[in-house]
């Protein structure tokens, strides 16, 4: 699969840009956190496209962002379940 570039993204409508980024991010996230992949991808897609492109080129920064998302998600789930009980 050819790498996603800023010019490829710029040629697409905004909503499609996120979908294109998501399609690239999802398999990488799925490899780390299969059960949370959809949710984590959705969270990361709220980040600026330019930053997401950098992350796709830098596995290290992507991994740290994924771990951050997992931590945020877990903290959120703990809060939610404590509210319910």
């Amino acid at each position: 699969q050819e790498p996603l570039t800023a010019s490829m993204l710029a040629a697409a409508p905004p909503q499609e840009q996120k979908q294109m980024l998501g399609e690239r991010l999802y398999p990488l996230i799925h490899a780390m956190h299969a059960s949370l992949a959809g949710k984590i991808t959705g969270m990361l897609l709220e980040i600026d496209n330019s930053e997401l492109l950098l992350m796709l080129e830098s596995p290290e920064s992507l991994h740290s962002k994924i771990e951050e998302a997992v931590a945020v998600l877990q903290a959120h789930q703990v809060t939610e379940s404590s509210l319910k009980s």
């Binding site: 998501g22 999802y26 398999p27 959809g38 949710k39 959705g42 969270m43 897609l45 931590a71």
Partner: peptide
């Protein structure tokens, strides 16, 4: 530091599945 990530973000649905899963 506080994360800017939003736990209530909408879930992403890939257009094509990664693995062939028979449901």
């Amino acid at each position: 530091k506080k994360s800017t990530l939003n736990p209530n973000a909408k879930e992403f649905n890939p257009s094509k599945p990664l693995l062939s899963v028979n449901k």
